[in-house]
């Protein structure tokens, strides 16, 4: 992570479109009067969804809507790395390089992205289609390594898989997100290793009285054995 500040080039103004404005007002209405500032994160998110990034005019507009000082909104926008403070490509690729993903081969993914797109971290392809960013833990370590493209997570990716995903995006397709190896959620990659019984079959009824008798007998035997003098 590095220092986060507003981009040098800023648009002259910002306004929510009608749909987003209605959504923003619905979000603000969730909070009691005087507590509108609580809506700052969802509103910044809306602004980012509309424009692709959070600009200074957007910060000022949101500050005005929530009756906050602009610096307070800026503090929030710079705190969360999910808010882009500069324009990003249409497909914003965030590769997790934190410990779990790195151990599972995120370096290959990074190399694939850099070679396939011809850009490094923090830059955007000249056609504006892709931008690449290094992300801290994406919070999906069980399916490491993980790449986030826009809102979607691509999990269990390897170098070749990343190459294929990027090819698909380049063709204008949108490959299915989730586990690339088609794992079921975060279940093990192979067959189940526990809870292997067929859950549809009834569990055989246990004879609790017999089990208790067996336990008592074993306990008595153990006590008797302990009581025997050592030879």
């Amino acid at each position: 992570m590095s220092r986060r500040e507003l981009a040098a080039d800023q648009p002259a103004n910002f306004a929510f479109n009608a749909d987003y404005l209605a959504r923003a007002n619905r979000i603000i209405a969730k909070y009691p009067t005087g507590r509108q500032a609580s809506a700052v994160i969802p509103l910044l998110d809306l602004a980012q969804r509309q424009e692709g990034w959070v600009s200074r005019p957007a910060i000022d507009v949101i500050a005005g809507m929530l009756d906050m000082a602009s610096i307070r909104v800026l503090e929030v926008a710079t705190f969360y790395t999910m808010f882009n403070l500069a324009p990003v490509g249409k497909n914003h690729i965030q590769v997790c390089t934190s410990l779990s993903c790195w151990l599972r081969g995120s370096d290959d993914i990074v190399r694939a992205c850099k070679e396939r797109l011809g850009i490094g971290f923090g830059s955007t392809t000249p056609d504006g289609m892709f931008s690449l960013a290094e992300a801290e833990c994406a919070g999906a370590c069980v399916n490491a390594p993980v790449v986030a493209i826009g809102d979607d997570y691509y999990e269990d990716v390897d170098g070749a898989g990343m190459w294929r995903i990027l090819d698909a995006f380049k063709r204008g397709e949108k490959p299915a997100h989730g586990s690339v190896t088609r794992r079921d959620g975060s279940a093990p990659a192979g067959p189940p290793t526990s809870l292997t019984d067929d859950p549809t079959k009834p569990v055989p009824k246990q004879d609790l009285a017999a089990a208790k008798a067996a336990y008592e007998q074993a306990k008595a035997e153990a006590a008797a054995k302990a009581a025997q003098p050592k030879t």
């Binding site: 986060r4 000082a69 610096i71 307070r72 800026l74």
Partner: peptide, 25 residues
């Protein structure tokens, strides 16, 4: 600045090691 002076223009941007005290713009 926020409480006594009543000019909420100072703030802390960024976080962790990158936190910086700055005035708005």
């Amino acid at each position: 600045a926020t409480e006594v002076a009543g000019v909420p223009e100072l703030g802390a941007t960024g976080r962790g090691e990158d936190m910086e005290i700055t005035t708005y713009l």
